[in-house]
């Protein structure tokens, strides 16, 4: 999937994550987290895996994590990417 427009998913609430995507010619991911020390690496891995699963190879991805569980981060990344790609996805494949 290719990100075509700026898009957002999630909120700043505790246990959620705010994911912002925008179009770019390169892939850049930046994560800030309230639990950076304990889970920073794991969160980055989750984000990278989800982007890979969605076929995203280019874009600016910023994640503001407020202690979200793994599936929440994946859901927010997916939400932002789908909005950014203005996609009508094949849900069976996601």
């Amino acid at each position: 999937m290719r990100i075509e427009v700026d898009a957002v998913a999630g909120t700043l609430e505790s246990s959620d994550a705010l994911v912002r995507v925008s179009p770019a010619e390169e892939l850049r991911i930046e994560v800030t987290s309230t639990v950076e020390a304990q889970f920073g690496a794991e969160i980055r891995r989750t984000v990278a895996e989800q982007l890979d699963r969605l076929g995203v190879t280019e874009g600016l991805i910023s994640v503001q994590d407020k202690g979200a569980l793994d599936f929440v981060i994946r859901a927010r990344v997916q939400g932002a990417v789908l909005r950014g790609a203005q996609a009508r996805p094949d849900w069976r494949k996601l």
């Binding site: 912002r20 925008s22 770019a24 850049r28 930046e30 600016l60 910023s62």
Partner: peptide, 9 residues
Amino acid sequence: ENTPFGLSS
């Protein structure tokens, strides 16, 4: 600004 990429881009 609310993105890490704005100024650098």
